[in-house]
Every structure is written in C-alpha cells, then in structure tokens.
Design a binder for these strands. Structure first.
Length: 458
RNA sequence: UGUGGCGUAGCCAAGCGGUAAGGCAUCGCACUGUUAAUGCGACCAUCGCAGGUUCGAUUCCUGCCGCCACAGCCA
C-alpha cells in the first residue's frame, strides 16, 4: 500500500466553470482530506435516490465512494443532470469529504458541484446476476466490476511479489524469446506462425531451455512472460495464453529448487495478505487458508504419493486405482493436496513421464529429479520443475529416444560442452497462483483478456 | 476430442403438449439516509437455428450451432 500512496499523489487542482477550485484526489486517498473540499473524477457505479436526496456511487479505479447530493445544496442544472444519469457515465464531482459509519468505505462526499463528462444510456452490465457467456463477451466492460477489479489487483500484487522476491534474492531477469524455431516436445501443442522465407516459427511454451543458457551466464536468472499452449483442454485451470515465471539456478540440485519454491510461494501469499485485505474481503476469501502457506511444505516422494492414492482408492474416495508409473490426474492431485493443510511438493516422478532434459536420481535411474508443487485446497499444480541433466552423452541419448530433431538442439548441447554444472529451476503459472490466492473457481478471471480454446474475443 | 448439462425479452429466470410467470435494467410518478433502496404505473419475446411427429410444439424426436461442467494434457 505504501508504494501505491507515493505513486498516487494529488493531481493539480482543477478549476470549475464557476471559477472555484479544489484539489483533484483519488478515492483511496479520501482519508487524508476529511473536512476538505475535493474534486473526484470517475464513473457512476450506481445511483440511488430518495426524494430530494441522490446517492451516486463514484468509481475511479482506486475505489468506490458514495456521494450525497441534497437538492438544495447544488445548482438546479446539477441536480437535473445527476438525477437520471446512467450507470458508467463519466463525471467530475466536487464536494466535502466526511467520515461516516454508514458508508461502506468509511467516507462520504457531500456534493456541492458536478460536471457530467459523458452521459451514458444502457450500460449492459447491471448490478444483478449475469451468465458466464454474457460476461465473457463483455470482458472489456466486466473489468470495471468490483470483483474483477479485486482479482486483477491481487494479480498485480502476485506479479510484484514474484519480481521483488527474485530480484532481492540475486536473480537476474533474462527473458526468453516468445518466437522460437523448434518445439521442445513435439508440435501438436504449439501455435505455429509464418516466419520469413517460408520458415515456420512457434510461440513459446516455456523459456526453460533458454534459461539454462542464461543461468550459465548469470548464475541465478529468471524469465517472466506470456507462454502459449495449443492444448485442446477446456477446464477451469487452462488458458491457451498464460503468464509464467521461471527461475533457474546454476550449481543447484533438486533440494535447492524445493527450498526456493517454498520460500517463493510463501512470500507471494504473505504479500497478498499484507497488501490486498480489501480485495480479499470483496472476494470473500478465507484468509486463514492463506496464512497457512509458510515454510516448510511437506515433501512427498512419488512412491509415497502413489501409496496415498492407493489408500484413497481402498477407502472409496477415489474411483480408479492409480498405477505406479503414470502421471497424476486432476482428481489424484486434488486427493493428495486434501491430505495436507499446506501446499505439497511431490518429487522424483518416473522419468518416462517427464521431459527429456530432466536429471535422473543416481540411486534409482528410473526416477527423474523433478518436483511439482500442488497448491492447497485442490488448486492443483502451480509449480513444475526440477534438476536438469548435465551429461552431454545422456542428453544425446534422450533426444534420440524422444525422436527430437537433433539439429535444433545443437545450441542447447553446447551448454553441456562448455562448463556443464548441476542446475535446476521451475516454472510457476501466474494465473493459477492468482486464482488460488483469490480462492476463485476459474483462471479465466485472473487475466484481463483470457485466451481459451473457444475464446479469443474480445 | 469424449461424457453429461443448458440455450425462453438488454440481463437473470419459471413453464415442459392447449397458445409465454416473476425479477432486474429502462421510462414515468412519489419519497431528505439510500446500501443490489422502496412503493405505484408503463414498456419489452419470430421461446438458439433447420427439419419431423401432432388437430395443436417453447414443451416430444432428429440434425446443426453456441455455451457450461468434468476428463485427458499441462502451469
């Protein structure tokens, strides 16, 4: 909150038509102006009336405040302009700030003057209930609603927490390209675009391989940007375009990644709790669940996770019996995470189901040194990562075994020819993390303009 | 892509073989403390599209389109 207050200093005073002036302020700054006359600029959120009284609620992006208009306190043309004003009309209001227990935000503004900048008729999103399709079609307007506003403010804090945590931990931002020449894991889940000279390029799925190059240059790095998956998945956890932050550390092992992941996730949760109490209240988030997100997180070996799933099946809490060797499905992940109050870190998955670049467990080569962080409350996988293989020969074999085009990986293999060291990292999806922090059902509300299987507009 | 569900006014929604409730929004009137204000009045519908069954279809059947949930895959 403190940094925001610095950014949102008063704007220069504006002069009204009658020559009077008062400082231009934002709604979240009203507490500093109690008793003073101020000018607010914003949009009409709602309007109630009672005889010679009007209660316009003004929204300016920083908050919503109820204003009070007494018919006798304003010029007749002001009263007439306000009394039938439509929702989302743009206006400037001049009035005196007053602390009032009856007001939701604690303050009210007694209006002495107002100027309608744009009168609106027929704003489609009313204060009543709407269906998903209607709201998604009006996403450009839906963003103005209190709940959406709260979610995106939490997202903003998640992003800041991510950057601050890594920057303060000596990570260097070294972004990976969005356009990439080849696929690391087949082309079926990649968006293809035309490059020059009949060449094909693909939108990145992950900055992973490039991170390994920058980690060898800077030691500890991260990339943070949009990633794209052309998966035909239609669930509450999937977007085709989402933002991912991927830290990578040279001279690091699986345990280092797990230590980093739990500190990282905990710092995000505590930052959200610290800065976004108002928003969490709007979202009716049970904040006691977020307060539990502190290190250490339970660490669960894949073998033990499988045992846990077998017990769940025997108790009839899971339909299918899980077979060792497979990847967890959504119901499996939910079951595992429900056994703990905190996020769980599941490590050492069968190598067969993990990416080609994963390092193997020296004691059990059939296992990969990978880790997934399963969020609490059934929010599923928010982090996936692990230790990378260091041996040139091993990677050459893996590329062959996965039937990947060797030429495309020559630059990557160079990283094993010139100063190859143990290194490890992970990726975290910003939208999944934000949905978890907010306690909301679907990731589509955690990004301003979601891109999904059947949704690319607006 | 598979399974299940749903498409009725600008929005939400009841009706499920006999000719379209109710609420919100909008418009008008009343009200000096409203909190999704309230009260009274007004306005708003080729019941997703195309066929079929029937004396008669929003209702039953078939196909198509759209949306939602779940699954696979993943962050």
């Amino acid at each position: 909150m403190a940094t925001e207050e610095i950014q949102q200093e008063e704007q220069p005073a504006t002069t009204t038509a009658t020559g009077e002036s008062s400082p231009q302020v934002y709604i979240n700054q009203l507490s500093k102006h109690v008793g003073a006359e101020v000018t607010l600029r914003g949009w009409l959120y709602n309007l109630r009336s009672s005889g010679k009284l009007l209660f316009p609620q003004l929204r300016d992006g920083t908050g919503v405040v109820q204003c009070v208009v007494f018919k006798k306190a304003v010029a007749e043309e002001v009263w007439d302009a306000l009394k039938n004003l439509g929702q989302e009309s743009a206006l400037s209001i001049r009035g005196t700030v007053r602390a009032d227990e009856r007001a939701p935000g604690g303050f009210e503004v007694d209006v002495v003057g107002a100027e309608v900048l744009h009168a609106v008729e027929g704003y489609p999103i009313t204060p009543k209930e709407h269906g998903t399709e209607f709201l998604m079609d009006h996403r450009h307007l839906w963003l103005r609603s209190r709940r959406q506003h709260a979610i995106l403010k939490v997202r903003h804090t998640v992003v800041r927490a991510v950057r601050d945590f890594l920057d303060n931990d000596n990570f260097t931002l070294a972004d990976a390209p969005v356009l990439t020449p080849a696929a690391c894991e087949g082309t079926t889940t990649l968006f293809e675009v035309d490059y020059f000279n009949d060449e094909k390029a693909y939108l990145t799925q992950s900055g992973q391989l490039y991170n390994e190059a920058t980690a060898a240059a800077f030691g500890k790095v991260y990339c943070f940007g949009p990633t794209f998956r052309a998966e035909r998945s239609k669930t509450r956890r999937h977007l085709t375009e989402f933002w991912m932050v991927e830290p990578e550390m040279a001279f690091a092992h699986l345990d280092d990644v797990m230590n980093l992941a739990e500190r990282f996730v905990s710092s995000i949760a505590s930052r959200v709790l610290e800065e976004r109490q108002e928003e969490l209240k709007v979202l009716e988030r049970d904040t006691s669940k977020l307060e539990l997100i502190v290190p250490p997180f339970p660490r669960l070996h894949y073998d033990d996770a499988v045992k846990m799933l077998h017990e769940g099946h025997e108790r009839g809490e899971l339909d299918a019996r899980f077979e060792w060797g497979g990847d967890f499905g959504a119901p499996d992940e939910t079951y595992i995470s429900k056994q703990f109050e905190k996020p769980v870190m599941v490590h050492r998955y069968p190598a067969a189901i993990k990416a080609f670049y994963m390092a193997r467990d020296p004691e059990r080569p059939e296992l990969a040194l990978g880790v997934d962080v399963l969020a609490s409350e059934g929010y599923g996988e928010v982090i996936g990562g692990g230790e990378r293989a260091t041996s040139l020969e091993f990677l050459e074999e893996q590329i062959k075994a996965h039937e990947l085009p060797r030429e495309a990986f020559e630059w990557y293999l160079d990283l094993r020819r010139y100063g190859s060291v143990p290194h490890a990292g992970f990726g975290m999806g910003i939208e999944r993390c934000t949905a978890w922090m907010c306690g909301i059902e679907h990731v589509r509300e955690t990004i301003p303009f979601p891109r999904m299987l059947y949704r690319i507009r607006p």
